[in-house]
Structures are given as C-alpha cells and as structure tokens.
C-alpha cells in the first residue's frame, strides 16, 4: 500500500523544479546518478517503486537507444576514435555525449514521474482552486483527470457492443480502420453531446465563479512549506545561473 506524503502539491512541484534545473545545469554524470538514486529510494520508501520503474523504463529505454544511435554510432567528433565501419563512427566523445544527454533526460523523467506519483490529484486540484490561478484551470485539470477513466470505460463498452454485433471483425489495415471508426465515432459523438449538455448547466450556474469560495477539502500547508517553496523557486532560477556563469564568462 503506497504511503501518502502530507506535503502541499506545490511544495513537491517546486522542489522537483529546483532539483531538475540545478542537476541539468551542473551536467555531471555522478550528480545525475545520485539524484536518480535518491528518487528511487524515495519511491521505494513511499511504495511507488514498481510504478516508477515501469513508467520510467517505458520512456527512457527508447530515449537512450535513440541517443546512442544519434550520438554514439554516428559521432562527428574528430578525436577519441573507437571504431569505424561505413557510415558508422563510434568515438569516446560521442558515447559520452549520449550518456550525458540520456542522464539529463533521465533526471527529468524520474523526478517528474516521482512528483506525479507523490501528489494526490484531488489535492492538486484543490491547491489550484485555492491559488490565484484562473478558476478555469482547476476545472479543466479536474475534469480531464476524472473524465479519463470514464471515457476509457466508455470506449471499452463501445468495443464490446460492436464485438457483440460482430461489427469491425475484418483483418488487415482496412479492418483496423473499421475498428477505429466503429469505436471512435460513437465515443466522440457521445462525449461531445455530454460536453454540450454540461455547458448549459454550468453556464446557468455562473461558471466560472470569481472570488473566494468555500471548499470542503483542505490542503495541508505551513509557513515552513511556503518558505521551502520560495527557496526552491529561487534555486530553480538562480542556481543554474550561478552554475553556468563561469561558462558565460569564458564564452
């Protein structure tokens, strides 16, 4: 059973932004590995390790393979030649570039996904509603996150209904197109009709309501967390500038 973390969603987001920007600016392989390790440990402690591993692998395996193809196999660097065969040219610099770029992406993916896994979507919607963001943002986020499983169910039901009436059983590309059409058209038409019906009800109730309004769900926050958020945001902006300043000077 995954543990829940009693932090304000914006605190988790701000910390993630600071970690990702500063690690990217530093561009050190050992720092990237250390950040990924810490993320894995946090995921293990909170019970999200398996999901984090599956989701990260789905993104990072093709990314690493692609970077190895682009930088590792057809390097344009002159020095550090390892092997040459036809159009392929493997150099130490090329492999190093592929690794550094892969680790840069890995930090973004692993830290970003951990952030998503740690934040409760209900808390995130509540936090956005309580923030100065336009009220439409909270509605759109909540509606999309809660509509997704509903529409996925609807799509499965449509697929089952079409299978029962033995429609869309053809093979090959034409059969695939027929299946897509038989699922997509009813799904889209029904969803647009639902959205149209909802809009009249929302409009009649004065949506989007401006100003403060009562929410039953509270979002845990404290002065310490607010300070952590501000410091994290400051680090996300000032940190990379400070790290990269010597390079700007030399350039």
């Amino acid at each position: 059973m995954p543990k829940s973390i009693n932090l304000h969603p914006f605190t988790v987001l701000a910390l993630t932004a600071a970690v990702v920007t500063m690690t990217t600016a530093a561009g050190l392989w050992w720092l990237s590995c250390a950040v990924i390790t810490v993320c894995v440990l946090v995921a293990g402690w909170t019970g999200h390790l398996r999901r984090l591993a599956v989701l990260s692998a789905a993104i990072l395996i093709p990314t690493f393979a692609s970077l190895l193809l682009i930088h590792g196999l057809v390097s344009q660097q002159a020095s550090g030649l390892i092997a040459v065969a036809g159009p392929f040219r493997v150099t130490e610099g090329g492999l190093e570039a592929a690794t550094v770029l892969g680790l840069r992406t890995a930090v973004l993916v692993v830290a970003g996904l951990l952030c998503t896994l740690l934040i409760s979507k209900h808390q995130l919607v509540a936090a956005i509603d309580l923030s100065p963001a336009p009220p439409q943002v909270g509605y759109l986020l909540a509606a999309t996150l809660f509509l997704l499983p509903h529409m996925a169910d609807k799509q499965r039901t449509i697929g089952q209904a079409q299978a029962l009436r033995q429609a869309g059983t053809g093979r090959g590309l034409s059969g695939w197109f027929q299946r897509v059409r038989l699922r997509a058209v009813p799904l889209v038409l029904a969803s647009l009709q639902d959205a149209h019906d909802r809009s009249s009800h929302l409009s009649a109730r004065g949506f989007p309501a401006a100003g403060s309004h009562t929410r039953l769900r509270t979002v845990a926050d404290s002065v310490t967390q607010q300070r952590v958020r501000w410091i994290s945001l400051l680090c996300a902006v000032v940190g990379p500038t400070a790290i990269l300043a010597p390079f700007w000077g030399s350039a």
Binding site: L140, A143, L147, M151, V188, A195, H196, S199, L202, P208
Partner: peptide, 10 residues
C-alpha cells in the same frame, strides 16, 4: 471550456 477536457481525454 466543457469541450476541452473531452478533447484532452480523446
């Protein structure tokens, strides 16, 4: 606004 979440889910 009510159409956008449907579009995102699609």
């Amino acid at each position: 606004l009510t159409l956008i979440p449907v579009a995102l889910a699609l």
